[in-house]
Design a protein around this nucleic acid. Structure first.
Lengths: 172, 172
DNA sequence: AGCACATAGTTAGCTCCCTAATCATTTTCG
DNA sequence: CGAAAATGATTAGGGAGCTAACTATGTGCT
């Protein structure tokens, strides 16, 4: 129980086991440990990502929006963006507001749909992506550098399955 | 490229590859994919967890605090809680405020340190944990039910290593 | 044609967690 | 012993994302 698991490895297997035992439940402590660690790790990595993007004056959400826009030819409707990014339309509105204020995207009315708007990546937005690319992708690569190619493939598979399983949290 | 990857599997390997190629970087697209998927999955699972705990009138942070408190005998200082939960002391203050308002914890001044406070799990707090335990742990188990015992062990190992690697995002 | 209903986008208000600054107590040390 | 530094907790303020409600435009059905 040495205190050099700098944290970040919380909770411990013992904690998981004690909790389950405490309530006399017939639940696999290891399964609980995996679930809780993922939730905890997700928050942790999310915060690290937020700090990372802050270097470039962006947030995780704003970066993801810019990148998605560029990958899609530089134009996309807010609804479509919300769908592809997996966030609400209201969130996209907020992200676009911030990006527009900094001149990284522009909004223009849709030509086909009177209700619609199209978000357009500006030259400045593209430039921002270009500027941060080497550092950004370099750090991402370093992040998983400790895993072999095979391990990465396994991780992707397991991660996808657990994420799919996370529907169990919200079911009903 | 069928559109039945309900999302949740975003981004695609193709997107990762295109992005890296676009900037002519010598970065492994698979590594980028793993990193980006983890960031995305973390946010997704985090939101699912938040919705899950909301059922019981709690948030992820508040639940984690209560659980940690119980596991520690029902008493702990805010600073110690912050350390063990991996959040800032200011966040713990906020969590305690909410929990105290609902009568799930109480604050009493520390007897040893004039500056200190001790958070105490109340009977109501313990009851809340007891009430939610079957549903809560059941769902957690279901979440990772798709993985075999061996796969869970592998996942724990890989997850820990990637989390450790995420320091690369904030380094410097 | 006209009216119900769906859809695009935004706004308002909420919670989560963070950092930075503040205040009160220790603790340390010249 | 008394000043400086460290530590515990809180407050103030900010950004992310959410839901629900609202406006405006499109679509469809009778």
């Amino acid at each position: 129980m040495t205190r050099d698991d700098i944290d970040g490895e919380a909770p411990t297997p013992d904690q998981a086991r004690r909790q389950v035992e405490h309530y006399g439940l017939e639940v696999d402590p290891q399964a609980v440990l995996v679930a809780v660690r993922l939730i905890s790790a997700g928050a942790r990595v999310g915060r690290a990502a937020e700090a990372h993007f802050a270097r470039f004056g962006l947030s995780t959400g704003r970066y993801r929006l810019l990148a998605d826009l560029e990958d899609h030819g530089g134009e996309k409707s807010p609804s479509h963006l919300a769908l592809d990014l997996g966030v609400s339309r209201a969130t996209v509105t907020g992200l676009l507001d911030g990006l527009e204020r900094e001149g990284l995207i522009a909004r223009r009315p849709s030509t086909e749909d009177g209700r619609g708007t199209v978000a357009v990546l500006t030259a400045r937005g593209a430039q921002r992506l270009r500027d941060m690319a080497p550092d950004h992708f370099g750090r991402l690569e370093a992040m998983v550098g400790g895993l072999s190619v095979e391990e990465r493939a396994v991780f992707l598979d397991l991660l996808a399955r657990v994420v799919r399983g996370s529907a169990a949290l919200t079911a009903d």
